[in-house]
């Protein structure tokens, strides 16, 4: 889906960010263009989830320096809800349970917020039910989950399907999926991956944050980045993920050592 004329959707330059006064990102650089699928891999604590939360505008994370541009506009000053409305979607590693808040109502309010931004008419309850039933098919999700509270009592797999359902409804420009494959059995992984593939559009992009190559067997990334110590230290294609699966993160350690030696 990539073409030479593809526009930049996300452009991150020398991003430094902290949480609770501790700097986690030490200069991230990343460019994501229309139609691209990027995978970010790395050890626990390497800064992958922090990067996703910083892009989504989590208030606990502070940008210390650098820039994040979405379609050419700096979004650092935008509130999380504004970022979501313009088309930035974060699929949570641990989707939050919200007792008492109906999943259906939540999905409808969220969808209408995005539609409003796109200058589309807001959907009433009946119109929305038609839409959501259609989108449920993408993730093969039981409609009974709509009647329950947001993620409450959902299994790990059901939570992740609910995330992809939200992605299907919000039709984001860029989706950052943080360990969407964690906690999924083989069948659920295929369903979720198939949902992500179906939702990929030539004018949108996806960033997959993952530990395992198995997700990348289902969704072929155009670029694979490896993060370590709050930076992207290596970029390649799918072969890099396969190599990483074989050698483990020793590959990064060797590379880093070599670079230090060369200096």
């Amino acid at each position: 889906m990539i073409s030479s004329t593809s526009e930049k959707i996300l452009s991150i330059e020398d991003l430094h960010a902290s949480v609770e006064d501790q700097e986690i990102l030490h200069g991230v650089n990343l460019v994501v263009k229309e139609g691209e699928i990027h995978a970010i891999m790395g050890r626990n604590g390497s800064g992958k989830s922090t990067l996703s939360k910083v892009i989504a505008g989590h208030p606990s994370y502070k940008v210390l320096s650098g820039s994040i541009q979405f379609k050419g506009t700096d979004i650092i000053e935008l509130a999380p809800e504004e970022r979501a409305r313009i088309g930035i979607f974060l699929g949570f590693q641990y989707p939050v349970e919200i007792p008492g808040v109906s999943n259906l109502e939540f999905l409808r309010v969220a969808t209408n917020s995005r539609r409003k931004e796109l200058l589309q008419s807001e959907l009433d309850t009946f119109e929305f039910e038609d839409l959501v039933k259609e989108r449920l098919k993408i993730v093969e999700m039981d409609p009974a989950f709509l009647e329950r509270s947001v993620n409450e009592g959902f299994s790990g797999g059901e939570k992740k399907r609910n995330e992809i359902l939200q992605m299907a409804l919000l039709e984001p420009v860029i989706s950052i999926l943080d360990e969407t494959d964690s906690g999924l059995d083989i069948d659920a992984l295929r369903i979720v991956a198939s949902g992500i593939n179906k939702l990929s559009q030539p004018n949108s992009a996806t960033i997959l944050i993952t530990h395992y190559q198995r997700l990348l067997n289902e969704i072929t990334p155009d670029f694979v980045h490896i993060m370590a110590d709050g930076k992207i230290i290596k970029t390649g294609n799918k072969e890099l993920a396969i190599e990483l699966e074989k050698t483990g993160y020793d590959l990064i350690d060797t590379d880093t050592k070599d670079k230090k030696m060369a200096k």
Binding site: A56, G57, H58, P59, A79, P80, E81, R83, A84, R85, L90, F92, P95, V96, I98, F106, V109, A110, S113, R114, E117, V150, Q166, L170
Partner: peptide
């Protein structure tokens, strides 16, 4: 944050 991150 979960709700805000959905544009609400």
């Amino acid at each position: 944050f979960y709700l805000l991150s959905r544009g609400i």
